[in-house]
Write a protein that binds this DNA or RNA. Sequence first.
RNA 1: GCUCGAGUGGCGGAAUUGGUAGACGCGCUGGAUUCAAAAUCCAGUUCUUUCGGGAGUGUGGGUUCGAUUCCCACCUCGAGUACCA
Length: 979
Amino acid sequence: MITMKYNFNEIEAKWQKYWKENGTFHAENDSEKPKYYVLDMFPYPSGAGLHVGHPLGYIASDIYARYKRHQGFNVLHPQGYDSFGLPAEQYAIQTGQHPAITTKTNIARYREQLDKIGFSFDWSREVRTSDPAYYKWTQWIFIELFNSWYNVETDKAAHIDTLVAKFETEGNANVNAVCDDDIAIFAAADWTQYDAKTKQEILLKYRLTYLAETEVNWCPALGTVLANDEIVNGVSERGGHPVVRKKMTQWSMRISAYAQRLLDGLNTIDWPQPLKDSQTNWIGRSQGAMVTFKVDGHDANIDVFTTRPDTIYGVSFMTLAPEHDLVQKITTADQKEAVEAYRDATSKRSERERMADVKTISGVFTGAYALHPFTGEKVQIWIGDYVLASYGTGAVMAVPCGDQRDYDFAKHFGLDIPNIFEGVDISEEAYGEKEGVKIANSDFLNGLTYKKAMKTVIYELEKRGFGKGKINYRLRDAVFSRQRYWGEPFPVYYVNGMPQMIDVKHLPIALPEVEKYLPTETGEPPLGNAEVWAWDTNTNTVVDNKHCHSELDAESTDNGIYPLELNTMPGWAGSSWYFFRYMEKALRDEHFASQEALDYWENVDLYIGGSEHATGHLLYARFWTKFLKDRGFVGVEEPFKKLINQGMILGTSAFVFRIDGTNKFISKNILDTINEKVNNGENLSEQEHSLFENWTPISGKSLPVQSIHADVALVSSADTLDIEGFKNWRSDFKDAEFICEEDGTFKVAREVEKMSKSKYNVVNPDEICEAYGADSLRLFEMFLGPLEQAKPWNTAGITGVFSFLKKLWKLYIADEGPRVTETEPTKDNLKTLHKTIKKVQYDIENFSFNTSVSTFMICVNELSVQKCTSREILEPLTILISPYAPHIAEELWFRLGNEGSIATAKFPVFEERHLVESSKEYPVSFNGKMRFKKELPLDLSKEEIEKIILEDERTEAQLNGKTPKKVIVVPGKIINIVG
RNA sequence: GCUCGAGUGGCGGAAUUGGUAGACGCGCUGGAUUCAAAAUCCAGUUCUUUCGGGAGUGUGGGUUCGAUUCCCACCUCGAGUACCA
């Protein structure tokens, strides 16, 4: 039976069931409609479940997706799970529970929570990165990267076969590729004579994913390497563990090949500026020159990168990073000891220490000299830890007059500071500015400005063979191996230490079972524990390790069974292409996505997610997309056309105060009163004093209390603590005493902090849905403020949107039954409706969802006052509100007698004519301050308005007898009188 | 240090091209209804005031008939980044 009350639980369950059963939000890949792709950054399903901060972005994107459906678009709005990751593995290490099981449980919980909020997701396209059917194609992309090289001539990636063809016909001398630095030149004839292993070794230096011994960020506590973006302030992003430098053989991704395109692409996409800025900084393009200095008395060169080759005549010494390869070779005998000691000391210092300590100047002279390319003068070669091995060539030409770090170094060690700037005082500090000065004491550069000097010196460097113009990037190749269990296995086995790819038709290579999720005793990654983890090239299956052909044992015959890779892929592998996977609906085993699907959906039109992925996921996803485009697998250069960052929802923590050394808790207001008295030097009452035995009040010193987080579930919106609940919450509070306010309540203090389990300030969306309904939750999350802004969660305000929904309901349905009639709408009715259409449409298109909610409230308030019952008004209103509060909209739409879902009902069209007015209540200002208002017809001329206003008695009162200097009349807007 | 963003009532916030500052909601105050409570409804709520008015969007200055909005300097908070040659 149909009730007349707004029974949100019933309504929401009913429509969620309807949507599911009818596949209301399933997108079609062949449609006459224009496409629109709305995507959320998919969640990692953690054990804690969703809190109210998570759905914020999902609600916003859902509103947009639903709006686009009303506008006649075929909308793809999918969802899935980034389900490989460290927390499940850590949990497995602690409990022995298989990560696949915990992940599955967590996903089920997430799904249940998401379903309750009424999102219009197309779940038929769900992806899970840990699903073998999904990571089959992650493995495939890896293989394609392995089978590719970057051709600088065409500025594209190409199949490795095209490179081999070049080697076979012309060698590598004329190959312009992005590759390793240490490439030896060979001719076509050489190539054909190389054995298979040598060829493989050479090709590895060109491949877009390659195996190389690299210096990595090793995190001993996590037992794995970390990428640069996974380290924050020298410690691991997850867990805050120390990170040290270590040399390891690792898979790397040659993302550096794409540095310039990643930079250029930013101009073509609609992303928030701060996000673009951080990618720009991360890529770190700088333009300058590569200059070669000869080492005196050695057959060795030092290459340096400099952005200021124009200051080359200011070079008075050189500094190498302590780790620089040449150091050992060139150090003289009498400096050997000092240099060794310094190198030893720096290698022991952690990254963190080196970063924290930027003030101490340290370094050692190697005893060797370099020759200045232009003057031939001898300059000392030093080592110093202010030079980073990982940037440029790990060496600098020091120009102390133009660079503050070189200047400080020179001052500290008493080195020369030659001045090459015309009329600049460098007795106190270096002159770092580029503009506004001319070069002096620099031979052919004398008298030139920065720009001209740059051109001239690069020309000369190139002409005389001392160097060349170069663009350098800070962006490093990304390490792609992780020493973890819960990640994608590599489709790789090793023959004679050389990596071999498994053919795509044998994928996926599924994650093996292991006894323990920790590294092995010999320090191998967790997959080293797997017993069935060898590749049989005869049967193309994974087989028991005991059959493995051992390379160490010369006696054994090669049986075609080889060890598989023990590392797994990093978290960003699966998330770098998942947006393409959603496009494919049916034949997911045959391709990562079909050509037709890719052609139809192209890329994501709107992407919503957090800004914390700026230099991780969002950069890698752009990289893989460009690569897939180059190789013709997808048609787009950028994955996400428009991106919006949603702000974080913060928790409002509650604190109780415990008097030190006791189990007595003191209510906040009492504590504040006493603190104030102490600060003002007032005497405390005997009772107050007795609370703090053995404590002498000193002004300015706060009372000896400890603040403790109380669970926000135990605190009312008026900051009152549920004392009984608190006592039962933790056993050590069982016998606690409470010093309460006069009215007998116990008050807590509030503070805004990040929402987290450990701060006991987490609020779950389920609780809200249960108490007020999903529509209330959706409206309230939007109502909190602008989407991109961080904002504190305060449940108190939810009653506002909840009563709004009840009011909305009552507009349609009275206690006695439906009130909608076929009456003609009044002028006021139409005006209210159309100004609402105009505003809501503007707001959605500008992602200003908070103001729409206000607009709905105003609209319903006005229609209630107008006692509007007209279907012509109320029916379009349900569509307007449906993106925000879809359940109530569906139900009202249904009760208005419509068939089926409201989801694709046409969005009402705004008509200006309903807003046209014949008169305006003009604000009348004096010197810019509004003093009174006057209703005037809109068709009056400026002169007429001026005349009427000047005759108004209130004007005379304001002017107080004076004649106005000027009268400004803006018809339809304002009148301003200048006195 | 550098880059970016933000400062408006007790609180969240609004003000679309420079044109009525504080919309809308919370909270609070008073009233109606109720045995009572919840719920609901009505009125008020930036500060100040001698009830005429006056002041007011972080601070100081500028442009303008008119500035929360534009310009300059400064202060505070937040985010990112950090010896990048």
